[in-house]
Design a protein around this nucleic acid. Structure first.
Lengths: 150, 150
DNA sequence: GTGTCTGCAAAGTCTTTGCACCATA
DNA sequence: TATGGTGCAAAGACTTTGCAGACAC
């Protein structure tokens, strides 16, 4: 866990949280995969090396990370909440392409420029018109992936 | 239940399904509200006049309607699946604006033209590049509504 | 009459809560 | 040492399944 992760540790501490071993492991797991892990996914990964860490702790840690703004929680409709670190400085903004059959999730960055432009304009207009304070958005495409088509 | 609902009845029958009273009521409820009802919402509405209809039937009917393509299932992240009739010929395509606090859902049609254009281009590019067969998409904005801001 | 649908109760799945013990700061 | 965190077990919330009786066609 190098320097670049300092910020979450600091933010955690400054919000009264403590830097515990399970939390470090969970953050590390999230930061070393491009995948969209579920609580259970993380549980299985942790369990191999740290069998004492329980699912409860994982849910609670994920919750904390979402609250301090380091994690995004997604619902792709397969019955599991999924989590993804919010873009690090070096990570590109992206959206999701989800296979309805195998639940595979693909990140795509194509058209992101145009999407962002549209999103910004839409956000602005919607905020004004409906007096909604818009915090974030979800753009997802659903379909059937190459493998499942066969 | 007038003529315009014939199509779902026909489609149901042609797929081997039967036109039962609970199914008619459920379809009728869905077709007479612009809201995004959950199974429980429908259950409470039905229960006033037809206390015998059970939640199970509602889940099963919603499932059928999704499968024959007359209903969209959404997950807005509040723990309830929500359903909405797929746009009837006279219904405009729209997207959603969801309040994180009270779960209120607003349909908006602003920018739909531009969105559709972008969506189509994106779909085309993504299909080609990732060999995904794209079936549908979800565009949602999350935030805090006017009331909850106060 | 036959195959589908229904309602009830029970089971399932994912997630949250309660509580005593433990560990960070 | 004082909070806040952890793990376990139990509870919760939503949804699905099994089965016998009911109903559409």
């Amino acid at each position: 866990m190098q320097e670049k992760y300092c910020s979450w540790e600091e933010k955690l501490k400054s919000s009264g949280g403590r830097l515990t071993t399970p939390r470090k492991i969970i953050f590390y797991i999230l930061s070393s995969t491009p995948k969209h892990l579920s609580a259970e996914d993380i549980y299985f990964i942790i369990h191999k090396k740290n069998p004492k860490v329980g699912l409860t702790t994982i849910y609670r840690t994920l919750d904390v990370l979402v609250k301090i703004g380091f994690l995004n929680k997604f619902d792709f409709g397969d019955g599991h909440s999924r989590y993804e670190l919010i873009e690090a400085p070096n990570k590109q903004h992206h959206h999701h392409l989800i296979c309805r059959k195998c639940s595979k999730i693909l990140d795509y960055t194509d058209f992101i420029e145009e999407e962002i432009k549209l999103v910004k304009a839409t956000e602005k207009a919607l905020s004004r018109k409906y007096k909604f304070e818009i915090k974030d958005h979800v753009f997802q495409f659903y379909g059937v992936c190459d493998k499942c088509k066969k």
